[in-house]
């Protein structure tokens, strides 16, 4: 790891000031992705801004027909939160399968979503549930937020504050893990919210994406069988030593089917 300065601001405003003043500063929350990257010297920040002391980024609460989760909510908190379990059990279930126990004890939802690793779990929930990303400056719809591998709509110095999840009628998630890294090899988050169906696919492609054919099929008939016949095109999907694009395409259908079954 290259050396850097460490800051721990006490307020959102101070954090934004630090990050805006230095384009090579990086925010850190749980650090479960950033620190391994820094250890491999893939990144050379001048300073690291620890967000963990910022109260505005905390909290999980239900507001009407929305669930608002602060950026600093750890995976273990989302997995065990009574509010999340009651409102969106699929989200709690997903959080309980991210990484391993120790990752869940440190990693945060804000960090995961802002990082937008194609093989991460949360982006598919955010996209599938049509959540809104709340930053220190604005509100961003999920469809606009994710812009491909490790890329989001966040501008330099802009901080993710919270994520607002509309509460769905039904939602379910299923994934196949990469056998080595245990990140997602192919995953599907399905949700029916206010009558609208969304299917978000993670792991299989270079970024999270919506599977519109499956959305149509499920709109017509909400059942595992409805998606079982929908084939994912392998073009553009990831292909590596762990599986071909064709295998991943096949898994997308299998996981979508299971996700619907999990949603009930």
């Amino acid at each position: 790891m290259y050396d850097f300065e460490y800051h721990k601001p006490g307020s959102l405003a101070d954090a934004v000031k630090l990050l805006s003043a230095d384009p090579d500063a990086r925010p850190i929350s749980g650090g479960q992705t950033l620190l391994p990257a820094l250890k491999h010297r893939l990144n050379k920040p001048t300073s690291v801004v620890d967000l963990s002391g910022i109260a505005e980024l905390r909290g999980i609460k239900r507001e009407g027909n929305k669930l608002v989760i602060g950026a600093l909510a750890k995976h273990v908190e989302v997995a065990t939160s009574p509010e999340v379990k009651a409102a969106i059990p699929a989200l709690a279930q997903m959080a309980g399968t991210i990484g391993d126990t120790q990752v869940r004890n440190r990693g945060t939802i804000g960090g995961s979503v802002a990082n937008n690793d194609p093989a991460a779990d949360y982006p598919s929930a955010v996209l599938g549930l049509n959540a809104t990303i709340v930053t220190d400056k604005r509100r961003i719809a999920a469809d606009d937020f994710f812009q491909g591998m490790f890329t989001t709509a966040l501008e330099p110095g802009e901080l993710l504050v919270a994520i607002e999840f509309p509460i769905p009628e039904k939602a379910g998630y299923a994934k196949m893990r990469n056998p080595a890294s245990r990140y997602v090899m192919a995953g599907a988050f399905v949700a029916k919210t206010g009558g609208a169906v969304r299917v978000a696919i993670n792991g299989a492609g270079p970024g999270v994406f919506r599977q519109t054919e499956m959305e149509k099929a499920l709109t017509a008939n909400w059942s595992p069988d409805a998606v079982a016949g929908v084939k994912q095109d392998a073009d553009g999907l990831n292909s590596d030593i762990h599986g071909s694009a064709e295998y991943r395409a096949h898994l997308v259908t299998v996981m979508a089917k299971r996700a619907v079954a999990n949603a009930g």
């Binding site: 196949m176 056998p179 079982a228 016949g229 929908v230 084939k231 762990h242 599986g243 071909s244 064709e246 295998y247 096949h250 259908t253 299998v254």
Partner: peptide
């Protein structure tokens, strides 16, 4: 004998099963 390899064998033998 990874999952991907085994699925490849199964899929090659019985393409009809692919999306089952």
């Amino acid at each position: 004998a990874t999952a991907a390899k085994i699925w490849g064998i199964i899929n090659a033998s019985r393409p009809a099963m692919a999306a089952e």
